[in-house]
Computed example of a mutant assay.
Amino acid sequence: MAAGGSAVSGAALDVHAVLERRGFTLDAALAARPGETLAVMGPSGAGKSTLLAAIAGVLRLPRGHVRVGERIVSDRRSHIAPQRRGVVLLGQDPHLFPHLSARDNIAFGLRARGLDRAHAGAEADEWLWRVGLPGSGPHRPGELSGGQQQRVGLARALATRPAVLLLDEPLTALDPETAGGVRAMLAEQLPAAHTTTVLVTHDAVDAAALAETLVLLEDGRVTQRGTVRDVLTAPATAFGAVVAGLNRVVGAVVDGWWRAGGLALPARGAAAGDAVALFRPGAVRLDTLPDGTGTGALRLAAAPGEWVGRVSRLEQTVAGIRVHTAEPAVAVDLPADLVAELGLAAGRPVRLRLDVDAVRLLPA
Results as ranks from 00 to 15, higher is better:
residue 234 A to P: 01
residue 241 A to K: 04
residue 265 L to K: 00
residue 300 L to V: 00
residue 289 L to C: 02
residue 271 A to V: 06
residue 289 L to N: 01
residue 214 L to S: 09
residue 215 V to Q: 03
residue 246 L to A: 06
residue 210 L to N: 06
residue 239 F to E: 09
residue 227 T to Y: 05
residue 288 T to A: 15
residue 222 V to S: 09
residue 297 A to N: 01
residue 216 L to R: 10
residue 269 G to H: 06
residue 265 L to Q: 10
residue 212 E to W: 03
residue 211 A to H: 03
residue 253 V to G: 05
residue 268 R to D: 15
residue 286 L to P: 03
residue 242 V to S: 14
residue 301 A to V: 00
residue 200 V to Y: 13
residue 268 R to T: 11
residue 269 G to I: 04
residue 264 A to W: 01
residue 192 A to Q: 12
residue 263 L to E: 01
residue 260 A to K: 06
residue 195 T to W: 10
residue 272 A to E: 15
residue 299 R to S: 00
residue 306 E to V: 02
residue 276 V to H: 05
residue 194 H to Y: 02
residue 243 V to I: 14
residue 271 A to P: 08
residue 212 E to R: 15
residue 224 Q to C: 02
residue 278 L to G: 04
residue 307 W to M: 00
residue 282 G to H: 09
residue 280 R to L: 08
residue 261 G to A: 12
residue 216 L to F: 07
residue 277 A to S: 06
residue 275 A to V: 07
residue 225 R to F: 10
residue 256 G to E: 12
residue 247 N to Y: 00
residue 258 W to I: 02
residue 244 A to F: 05
residue 255 D to C: 05
residue 261 G to E: 11
residue 233 T to H: 13
residue 223 T to E: 13
residue 255 D to Q: 04
residue 220 G to C: 04
residue 236 A to W: 11
residue 295 T to S: 14
residue 231 V to C: 09
residue 233 T to P: 07
residue 300 L to E: 00
residue 209 A to V: 12
residue 240 G to K: 07
residue 212 E to Y: 03
residue 276 V to Q: 09
residue 231 V to M: 07
residue 213 T to V: 11
residue 253 V to D: 10
residue 213 T to W: 11
residue 275 A to S: 07
residue 292 G to T: 02
residue 302 A to D: 04
residue 298 L to N: 13
residue 212 E to F: 03
residue 289 L to M: 04
residue 219 D to Q: 13
residue 290 P to V: 03
residue 201 T to L: 12
residue 240 G to Y: 07
residue 233 T to G: 14
residue 220 G to R: 08
residue 248 R to V: 10
residue 209 A to P: 01
residue 308 V to K: 00
residue 269 G to E: 11
residue 195 T to L: 13
residue 225 R to M: 09
residue 252 A to R: 15
residue 249 V to Y: 15
residue 252 A to V: 15
residue 255 D to I: 12
residue 226 G to T: 06
residue 305 G to Y: 00
residue 308 V to R: 00
residue 256 G to V: 08
residue 214 L to F: 04
residue 294 G to Y: 03
residue 240 G to I: 02
residue 244 A to W: 07
residue 230 D to N: 04
residue 273 G to T: 09
residue 241 A to G: 08
residue 222 V to K: 03
residue 255 D to W: 10
residue 261 G to R: 05
residue 238 A to T: 13
residue 225 R to H: 14
residue 198 V to E: 05
residue 217 L to P: 06
residue 267 A to I: 04
residue 290 P to Q: 13
residue 224 Q to F: 08
residue 285 R to W: 05
residue 265 L to G: 02
residue 310 R to W: 05
residue 238 A to N: 11
residue 259 R to D: 07
residue 221 R to D: 08
residue 215 V to C: 06
residue 248 R to E: 13
residue 195 T to D: 05
residue 293 T to N: 07
residue 205 V to S: 14
